[in-house]
């Protein structure tokens, strides 16, 4: 092999190793973000501006009253059409807010859904909340995709079904999607994400991917080490007395 080819191979290999390191570490971090966040310091951010709004609802009984979220970790309330915002506290962390609804038929009734936690209802404008008992577990793979509020019912859509809650008799009606439909519901993007993180095989898949990622990290680090560490030098000694085909390699 030519020296230049070897050199190209070495540096491509090194770059690939760095790439594998980045991909493997970020994949583990993506699957276990709560583990990494538990090492961080707790930040209390009580500031909010209109540019951060990702979900918002307007009170049908008071046009000035808004509730908004940056979707990630915070929920804010404004009494003056968004000029000033006040942090709204729940008894659970407001991660991944995916729906805020004001009940158009009952004053001060707010319904909030947190994608991977559940549905929370307040009947006093957001001071006291109550958790709505769901017939599924959003934190176990069946997260809440959408929530809609009707006069006497709440409709929740997840990737596995359509759930209707009757607020009068407090009963759930389930319409689970059939297996064929379930696979169609996964968009290409979701499929690739699930394949990338191992979620396609459930939680066990995540751990298997973690294991493989750790293996790749080890291979990448050892590969970089081997390519950087100085090579052993050998001296070729031709044994003149015997056969010239016998070559002795002596470590210098």
């Amino acid at each position: 092999m030519k020296k230049s080819t070897r050199l190209i191979h070495k540096w491509t290999g090194l770059l690939s190793c760095v790439f594998i390191l980045v991909v493997s570490i970020t994949a583990i971090a993506l699957n276990h973000h709560d583990f990494f966040s538990s090492f961080g310091t707790i930040k209390q951010d009580n500031t909010f501006s209109n540019s951060q709004i990702k979900k918002m609802a307007i009170d049908p009984f008071n046009n000035q009253h808004l509730i908004a979220s940056d979707e990630d970790k915070s929920l804010f309330s404004s009494a003056d059409s968004g000029k000033n915002w006040k942090k709204l506290e729940l008894f659970v962390p407001t991660y991944k807010v995916n729906n805020i609804s004001f009940d158009p038929f009952k004053k001060d009734n707010i319904i909030l859904s947190l994608r991977e936690a559940g549905v929370y209802i307040s009947d006093d404008g957001g001071d006291v909340w109550d958790e709505l008992k769901l017939p599924f577990f959003p934190n176990e793979g069946e997260s809440i995709d959408n929530l809609s509020l009707g006069k006497d019912n709440i409709i929740i859509k997840t990737r596995f079904g359509f759930y209707t809650y009757n607020t009068m008799n407090k009963k759930w009606n389930k319409q689970l999607f059939d297996a064929n439909l379930k696979s169609k519901i996964l968009s290409n993007e979701e499929f690739i994400y699930n394949l990338h993180t191992g979620k396609i095989f459930g939680n066990t898949g995540i751990y298997i991917y973690d294991f493989i990622s750790v293996g790749l990290i080890f291979l990448a680090i050892s590969g970089i080490y081997l390519s950087i560490k100085p090579k052993r030098k050998f001296r070729v000694i031709l044994d003149q007395s015997k056969n010239h085909d016998i070559i002795q390699l002596k470590k210098l």
Binding site: D34, F35, I42, Q44, F91, V92, P93, N139
Partner: peptide, 25 residues
């Protein structure tokens, strides 16, 4: 006495951490 404010939750026991914190409060 709230998760992410003055209490750090336990990985793999998120819901239990929230519940314990609510209970202590």
């Amino acid at each position: 006495i709230e998760i992410d404010r003055d209490i750090v939750h336990i990985t793999g026991a998120t819901i239990s951490s929230w519940s314990m914190t609510s209970g202590v409060k």
